[in-house]
Design a protein around this nucleic acid. Structure first.
Length: 288
DNA sequence: ACCCAGGCGGGCG
DNA sequence: CGCCCGCATGGG
């Protein structure tokens, strides 16, 4: 069994279930304290589990991975080198944040493939978590490449989706977002190299993403955070908006623009991690 | 039955 | 430019 020993705190369950891309395309189970997840990528399938006592992240794989590339995938995916103490030092600005951190200590902002993240978060608009999961599963089953030897499907690539018809995409769970994911898939397989955004600064990368129909301020920030890990990004959805207004503005409604400025001032350079803890704490506590 | 969901683009004032 | 509206679909 291949494994990686972790130093800092790690909460695999919440890293996956907290509404990040893995929440939409992994299958999870839990048995006597060990959390297990299986997820597909464009190259193959990965099985990973975390043993809290031993602090070991165990993994195995199928498809186009080598021993080295598999290890790299897991280490990168779960961001094992994030310095959690330093991050917590930066974002534990008040009681609400310290509560969130203690509730989900070790939850990581994971690192995901740009196209996977783009597809997941275009699907997320005006949608709920369960339906997003089902949509991704249906799209993978219909359009993803087959993993050799199994009936399992890989995550559908931009090329796979670009070849589908809009009405078929609609029927496979995308609904009115079908035209957006097809357009994005065409752009990403023809004219825009998503790899090129890694070397762009936050603002430029965001402008580039928002040129795609169906990607607005919030979805762009999600892609920049969960794929490119640009920590200045601060996706503001209904939950984050509500919790910010409640905790920091005495319940007063504030425009998105002002909330972005607030976050940038308060969690300067680590807004992304702050958002993930705010979001998941607010959701779990059903703060409205 | 009825309400709502990790927003977005388009149309209007 | 800001505001407001409709949007496919299925889970609660």
């Amino acid at each position: 069994m291949n494994s990686i020993t972790l130093n800092g705190p790690f909460d695999m369950k919440n890293s996956i279930e907290s509404g990040q891309p893995l929440a939409f395309h992994s299958q999870c189970s839990e048995s006597n304290g060990t959390f297990h997840a299986r997820y597909s990528t464009s190259e193959g399938a990965m099985s990973a589990s975390y043993n809290k006592e031993a602090k070991k992240l165990n993994y195995s794989w199928e498809g186009g991975y080598t021993k080295e590339s598999a290890r790299k995938e897991v280490a990168r995916r779960f961001c094992i080198n994030d310095d959690m103490q330093s991050i917590y030092g930066k974002i534990s600005t008040d009681d609400f944040m310290t509560d969130a951190i203690s509730a989900y200590k070790g939850m990581r902002v994971t690192c995901n493939d740009p196209w996977d993240t783009t597809l997941c978060f275009i699907l997320s608009q005006f949608n709920n978590m369960k339906r997003i999961r089902n949509s991704v599963r249906m799209l993978a089953n219909s359009y993803g490449q087959q993993l050799d030897g199994t009936g399992e499907r890989l995550f559908p690539s931009a090329d796979d989706i670009s070849k589908a018809g809009i009405s078929d995409l609609m029927r496979h769970g995308a609904g009115f977002r079908a035209k957006y994911i097809k357009g994005a898939a065409e752009t990403c397989s023809e004219s825009l190299d998503l790899q090129s955004l890694y070397k762009m600064d936050y603002e430029t990368a965001k402008e580039t993403l928002m040129e795609i129909n169906g990607i607005g301020d919030k979805v762009a920030d999600c892609i920049l955070l969960f794929a490119y890990r640009k920590m200045e990004s601060f996706p503001i959805d209904v939950w984050v908006k509500r919790v910010l207004e409640k905790v920091y503005f005495n319940g007063k409604k504030k425009p998105i623009k002002e909330l972005h400025t607030f976050a940038a001032d308060r969690w300067d350079g680590m807004e992304g991690y702050a958002q993930q803890y705010l979001f998941w704490h607010a959701r779990s506590m059903k703060i409205k």
